[in-house]
């Protein structure tokens, strides 16, 4: 059993389209042919899958993974993995035979016995879906060399949920769209996106006005199109969103420059000097400041730091940093401290 590295390396790198796209991700769902899916598999079968995976990974040299037994680790560590988006909420529920294989850089992971036996995930800052697909494909091949995956000629890769069957591919992009939101264009853009077989949702909070203006866009259809087509579709829609967001930013700069500067600098001020701050308020203010950085209104701060803070201000990360459990009130104080330490 390995320990979790609590720091976040991922966002210290620059990625393409970074003014709008925070990160991109590819996930592949796979199952072993002869073993029931995790919802029906016995404890012993799920444990066996973890052992088989361990063996496959030990037999190759290209990728180094640490094994985290999600039944054995502490509640707070499970929360940390969840806040880092390394495991799903479903996977964070304690159950025998759940595991996570994670590389040191924390950009490649394999969830074992989530809804499917395997969920291969690769992520990167900025917009980088082609590279991610190449990597996920390679790890899929690596597992398949020694494991017999459930596959049918008609339905493709068989998954527990029919919404994942076929390619088992979910490609997604996390984007920051403050100007589309401020100029009231977001609903129109989102409506258009959902017509194109893509799903949009707020990253933090539900509805069309999620905290921090952060949205996740992903493909819904996994059957009947090739992986490349699915990714190209998401990429082209994404290119349009990036252009729309940049256009909206330009309109704000042209028409509201003084108000915009004032609002952004005030938000920066609150982040710098608040004594206590809720996560919702922090997300909103961080969104303002990120916009300020991307527009050149705030110059002495890096946008990567803001992306990193999105994770560091979440409850489990604050508790780990403080070294003990915190009440809601204490969390809000600690959050303000954490932000001021970084900016």
């Amino acid at each position: 059993m390995e320990n979790i590295d609590y720091s976040s390396h991922l966002f210290s790198e620059a990625g393409p389209e970074k003014d709008v796209i925070i990160s991109s991700r590819i996930r592949l769902a796979r199952n072993i042919e002869d073993i029931s899916f995790p919802n029906k598999a016995k404890d012993s079968e799920r444990k066996e899958i973890v052992e088989m995976t361990k063996q496959v990974i030990a037999d190759q040299e290209k990728y180094q993974f640490n094994l985290l037994d999600l039944y054995e680790i502490s509640d707070i560590d499970r929360e940390i993995l969840l806040e880092k988006h390394l495991i799903s909420r479903d996977h964070a529920k304690r159950r025998v035979g759940k595991a996570l294989f994670l590389n040191n850089k924390q950009d490649i992971s394999i969830m074992v016995n989530e809804e499917d036996h395997f969920r291969i995930q690769v992520l990167s800052p900025g917009m980088d879906l082609d590279k991610l697909w190449k990597k996920a494909n390679e790890i899929d091949d690596l597992l398949e060399e020694n494991l017999d995956f459930a596959f049918s000629e008609k339905w493709g890769y068989l998954t527990a949920c029919p919404t994942n069957v076929g390619t088992g591919l979910r490609a997604s992009i996390m984007c920051h769209l403050p100007a589309l939101n401020l100029t009231n264009r977001i609903d129109k853009v989102m409506g258009a996106i959902s017509q194109l077989g893509l799903a949009v949702r707020g990253m933090y909070g539900e509805g069309s006005n999620p905290a921090g203006n952060i949205y996740q866009i992903s493909n819904q259809i996994t059957l009947g199109h090739s992986e490349e087509d699915i990714i190209d579709n998401l990429k082209s829609v994404n290119q349009q969103i990036v252009e729309q967001e940049r256009k909206a930013r330009q309109i704000m700069l042209n028409n509201e420059i003084d108000n915009l500067k004032d609002a952004i600098k005030r938000s920066f001020g609150v982040l710098k000097y608040a004594y206590t701050i809720s996560s919702k308020e922090a997300l909103q203010l961080l969104s303002d400041v990120k916009l300020g950085i991307d527009l050149g209104i705030i110059n002495d701060l890096s946008a990567d730091l803001i992306s990193e803070l999105l994770i560091l201000i979440r409850p489990a990360h604050l508790k780990i940093s403080e070294g003990r459990d915190l009440t809601n009130k204490e969390l809000n104080i600690k959050r303000a401290e954490m932000i001021q330490e970084k900016i």
Binding site: S36, Y157, T159, P162, V165, I221
Partner: peptide, 29 residues
Amino acid sequence: FGCAECYDIFENKLESLMKRIHGNTEHSG
């Protein structure tokens, strides 16, 4: 589904279900 074989057992129901979810009924990836 509980296992890969479920796809065979419930085959006659899947055509319309998959059509509704994915708009397609044939893997091409």
